[in-house]
Design a protein around this nucleic acid. Structure first.
Lengths: 210, 210
DNA sequence: GCAAACTGGATAGTGGTACTGTCCAGCAAG
DNA sequence: CTTGCTGGACAGTACCACTATCCAGTTTGC
């Protein structure tokens, strides 16, 4: 199909398609001549994916490129590919502050206790964990370790269920796509549901208080 | 204290403090003369809060203002104040698409089933729930209702624990601050932990696959 | 056979957000 | 009485994600 068709089927504006092409988020189509190229279903699907990641996940274009590169590097094993993808979905880590060492110790202990033996030492998510715990440490001198354990337990159950739901039989690109969409849209689902739960329970608890 | 002192204690640049003052995120200090004003601890604390919400939560300045207004409207009951705060923390809702009605039905059923009787009908979070379910419906014709129920159950437990941990005895401003910081930083903690769990379990499951 | 529509590609412009910097006149302290 | 700092107004910057325009060269419909 030509661009016009791609634009029609994906409902993404031409200018945006061109932008994504320029940014390497979309392969150039198969050249038909100097002035036209052939795009296929993979482009339509990719575009749908990119729009979800941008609109629901708010993932910046630069990180989408990292994601695309992870998909395309066929030398990577599936779990290396996943690891790269998670990094791309995670926000940039914050600079270390005064409570860094304490936070790093707590994070380390939490990861070990929860049994997460397969997290790479250099994982960005690990750094981000330290960062968040640092913020907590700055506010409430003496971080509630039982609280951390509670969250880690819940997160573990969620992550396990999500990975288990991935269909092993698919090819690597489909697998990665399912994983990425899952992380992003179920992540958003979870936070919306969490806010709803907070709204409900705060009403229950504080209804009688002026 | 004078601005210079406020800047020193909060480590927020003067230009930014002035900007927040202009935007109504910070009250003007008590006037001492035409050219000086007195700021206090409440300004330092507010600044720390604003920085956390911006840097950890990425909440835009406009929504921070809505949050501040909720704190300051003393006519509001505590739970109305909370409801307003949650709205400010939630992202803007997406426009309705073709699967809107189906999604709305699913959302409605999910909220009822989970027992969230105290969610206001006009709650923004409710609209956002419909939006996320719509995205799911667009991708996978036939949304997995058991999956939704699983997430709602988990979210309910988290929300309940979070609200329960709020100390009823505090005054309304402190209460709101705890709630807001909790929502934002524990929200971030949860997503970091969830990504870590995914990283671990994906390694477990896909280690052997090239 | 030829004008209108469309193509890929290059490049410039837009709108939004969150600051950041500069300038000013007026106090206040040393 | 000068040096430094103040609140206030306002202009400027940096980044991001598009969006628009222009171009020269096809391709298509008549």
């Amino acid at each position: 199909m030509l661009v016009s068709e791609l634009v029609r089927r994906s409902a993404v504006p031409l200018a945006t398609v061109k932008y994504y092409l320029r940014e390497g988020l979309l392969h150039p189509g198969q050249r038909l001549s100097a002035r036209s190229a052939d795009y296929d279903d993979s482009h339509v699907r990719r575009l749908a994916l990119l729009r979800i990641l941008r609109e629901v996940g708010g993932i910046p274009v630069g990180r989408l490129r990292a994601l695309v590169e992870a998909t395309e590097d066929t030398r990577l094993s599936v779990h290396d590919m996943f690891a790269r993808a998670t990094e791309a979905l995670a926000p940039a880590s914050r600079p270390a502050g005064p409570h860094h060492d304490e936070a790093a110790r707590l994070a380390e202990r939490l990861v070990t206790e929860t049994g997460w033996s397969d997290i790479r030492p250099e994982s960005l998510n690990r750094k981000n964990l330290v960062g968040v715990i640092e913020v907590l440490a700055e506010r409430e001198a003496g971080v509630d370790e039982r609280g951390l354990t509670f969250y880690a337990g819940v997160a573990d159950r969620i992550g396990q269920a999500e990975i288990a739901s991935l269909d092993k039989a698919k090819d690597r690109v489909d697998l990665l796509e399912d994983m990425v969409v899952g992380t992003v849209v179920y992540g958003e689902l979870l936070s919306v549901l969490r806010r709803l739960a907070e709204e409900h329970h705060s009403a229950q608890r504080f209804r009688d208080r002026y």
